[in-house]
Amino acid sequence: MRSNLEPRAPWGLKLAALLCVLFLHVPLLLIFLYAFTTEEKSYQFPPPAYTTKWFAVVWERQDIWDAIWLSVKIASIATAVALVLGTLAAAALWKSRFIGKDYISLLFILPIALPGIITGIALRSAFNVADIPFSMWTIILGHATFCIVVVFNNALARFRRLSGSMIEASMDLGADGFQTFRYVVLPQIGSALLAGGMLAFALSFDEVIVTTFTAGTGVDAKTLPIWMLDELIRPRQRPVTNVVAIFVMCVTFIPILAAYYLTRDAEHTAGAGK
């Protein structure tokens, strides 16, 4: 609750905040608007008339469903890979102490700081050198590089809040390593993993650059974002892209929002145990 004693923001600041919010969100509203326009060749404002027929068109087009299904598959597998590897890496760095530990954890985080184009080129040449044919799996590997970072960061932050003596306490009370992980560690890092996993999924789902570099050709190369890029170049049925964009927004927005609430709640309770 905001108390009356708290100083109120001056109106100038409020205006700036409002403008900022508008700047961020008006373009998104336009996407919604043009999903319902009857004009299919240009973005005429205001739209001459409104229709919902584009939703039906999207429903009918197999290439869209293929693209969505491919993206979901890639994002799910990349996230699963990231969850396992990212958690293991975080656990290893949390528990052990060795020379160069800080550099190792920097190396883990680097892929997300690197421009996607660098990651993309590096992976493409690596796949070429290793003679790995480009396929859905090369895209998954490419996405996993930055998905791991998100999981790793989330898991490590939570691990650091876990007191080391809790693990010892569990062992002391008769639990072996597996039981300790299942009953003590996992419940406490679970929400961090879920949050990291959702972010990873969202990142993978709308990734374009790394995908372009690691994709082969044909149906296996056309993830949803790539399909959208292709579609923009075509002059016909523009609102179809907007309908798909709305779909993508929903798919990525819900997990990000959920991740936000999950980690926020955890912060509330995690400190209380100590």
Partner: peptide, 20 residues
């Protein structure tokens, strides 16, 4: 003999209770 097979139990300095 690992800690979980010893007939010994510990009260930790920070108590190490499981918060969840």
């Amino acid at each position: 003999v690992p800690p979980y097979r010893r007939a010994v139990n510990t009260v930790f300095q920070d108590y190490a209770l499981f918060p969840h």
